[in-house]
Write a protein that binds this DNA or RNA. Structure first.
Lengths: 352, 352
DNA sequence: TTGAAAGCGCTAACAT
DNA sequence: ATGTTAGCGCTTTCAA
């Protein structure tokens, strides 16, 4: 085995050609595919390239091929653990395949979202993993379509498409079924006044969760009015205030489903401030299994889905597209599990 | 025939030149710097470019200029909230400055770390934000040095440098002072048997924290043997087992400093399993202020530093380098705050 | 199977 | 102030 002396980025393909005593284009062929190259030449070229520590210039190649080997990831907030886990897994899979992952965190700002798409397009990224953060994301979808890159949607509703067009592949999490299972579980414990605290129901995943929640209520013949859906910003303080109002009322819910860490935190604080014990006075269920849910006392029963799988599946779907050929899968639906812990119990007697 | 108004990436500078009735190079000059271009020509060119929806081809430009407008970020785990917050802030600042952020998450694998550096170098990223995850990172430093890009270190010890070389800029968090303050606080409450649970002390930040811990003990004249430092992997199960052993012993510590969410979680679980009340029987202090620390009952007193500031400062340091000229700051030291909550109290009588 | 030549779209040195 | 020209390093026809 030949020892690579030192990776020298400034060695050009021309120098390798000279060293191997063949033409520049032969080196290119030998090093890529290797099609239409005699075995001996292939070996000589490889040896020369190795000896000189040749590294192809990716910029020059990109200029020629119009592909960059880079993939963008557009999310509203990478520091949100729910996204961070996805990005992490996607990066891992993509880097295995030789792609670089570029991230853009847009803080739900539609302007920044479109700017990021434009930036991605201008840089000719080969593909994009995208989870628009704002409900009014039509313009983001348009920008994406105009960019003409391969797109994989991360747990968002797909945009309407024109006739004849194929929809973008998407990795979806079955939040509806998850919310249904969670609600059924609470109903099964005897709860009839269940509240859902969600940061917004305009789009997936919020909309799906609300639908699943209502599915389960309808199944149980429960009056939706007895089961309020509180839609609010995801700020903890706001959640806490809202939860206080909700739990302080006369006909307070006996169970509460909280979406996300911030809202869960706010709700738990509110319960504590009101002197409500969990699960004695109030059952609490978290949508999203975070450290807080797992480690709280009592440990919080939670809906969990596999973030790593979301990221990996998204990367896989995109890679299928990028490599072209072969059967193209266009949709992955991942399950949600209900992790039973100690935060849910039958409602207090007299309040049923 | 009327020209296309929408952004058309395939419009070349040559076509703009034709439309504006000037030469190709004049367009280049007019659109960049604008130096040595008459006002009228500048206006005409801008108008033509605008009308045609000209977008410069960044790939071609990169090939020429050997700069890419991209910055890499190398960390062991983006899904770790402590890194995610930094990445988020860095991305924000860098994207403002027109740079794209490429991430590589290397899971503490030295091989992947070097592969990522090689990849960054091969792609000619203009700079790198780096926090090597393994203690044996000499080869990572070498690879980085060989790559020849601008480097900013994220809260890690700087590598030794050859005489005459200028060290890489670094953003450091003052963990030593933080740990010292935390330990002093516990000592002040009357604790003398204080344990430090850390995921590793071979490098920054662990080493600094241990140093600060010992500083404070020495100040107080406490026998270090009474204050064990447990070094372990950051797995929760392991932390829990270790914490169980530690807390189950005869001379158990009356206070415990836990580094990171996983270890905090393990420690809290262990305390619960042993029937130790916090803070009645055991004071607990968290290094790193997470949702879990803030929302646990009782809320956990914690050391906190500003992740956003770390990311922003790192981006700023790098941008200074990339833009060149001007005074170059080479080091930022950010403070650590002690957030007082309810998890620390004087030790139980009889155990002091 | 191999080589010569033509660019990809841009910037920058040089000439005017 | 503007135009001409020569590449950046590579892939890819097209000939041989």
């Amino acid at each position: 085995m030949e020892e690579i002396v030192s990776r020298n980025a400034s060695v050009t393909i021309r120098e390798v050609a000279q060293a191997a005593g063949v033409s520049l284009s032969t080196v290119s062929r030998a090093l890529n595919g290797g099609k239409n190259v005699s075995a001996r030449v292939a070996r000589d070229v490889a040896a020369a390239a190795n000896r000189l520590g040749y590294q192809p210039d990716i910029l020059a190649r990109s200029l020629r091929t119009r592909t960059t080997g880079m993939v963008g990831c557009l999310v509203s907030d990478i520091s949100n653990p729910l996204y961070a886990g996805i990005v992490q897994a996607a990066e891992r899979r993509l880097s295995e395949a030789g792609y670089l992952l570029v991230v853009a965190s847009t803080a739900n700002d539609p302007g920044r979202e479109r700017a990021a798409v434009a930036e991605f397009a201008g840089r000719r990224l080969d593909g994009v993993l995208v989870a628009p953060g704002n409900a009014a994301n039509d313009r983001t979808w348009h920008a994406l379509a105009a960019a003409g890159t391969s797109v994989v949607i991360l747990d968002r509703d797909s945009p309407p498409i024109d006739a004849g067009e194929t929809p973008w592949p998407a990795v979806l999490v079955d939040h509806r079924e998850g919310a249904r299972a969670a609600t059924r579980y609470l109903v099964g414990l005897g709860h009839r006044r269940i509240a859902l605290l969600t940061p917004g129901g305009g789009m997936r995943p919020g909309r799906e969760r609300i639908a699943g929640f209502r599915d389960a209520l309808a199944e149980a013949g429960i009056d939706p009015a007895a089961a309020p859906v509180c839609i609010q910003e995801s700020s903890m303080d706001f959640a806490q205030g809202d939860a206080l109002a909700l739990l302080g009322g006369a006909e307070r819910p006996t169970a509460l489903i909280a979406l996300g860490t911030r809202i869960l935190a706010g709700a738990l604080r509110a319960a504590r401030d009101l002197g409500l014990s969990v699960p004695g006075d109030l059952s609490v269920l978290s949508v999203g299994d975070t450290d807080l849910a797992a480690m709280h006392t009592p440990a919080i029963t939670a809906l969990r889905w596999n973030l790593e799988e979301v990221g990996r599946a998204a990367a896989e779907l995109l890679l299928q597209r990028l490599r072209g050929g072969g059967p193209v899968q266009s949709r992955a639906l991942l399950p949600v599990d209900l992790v039973l812990r100690q935060s849910c119990a039958p409602p207090p007697v007299g309040l049923v």
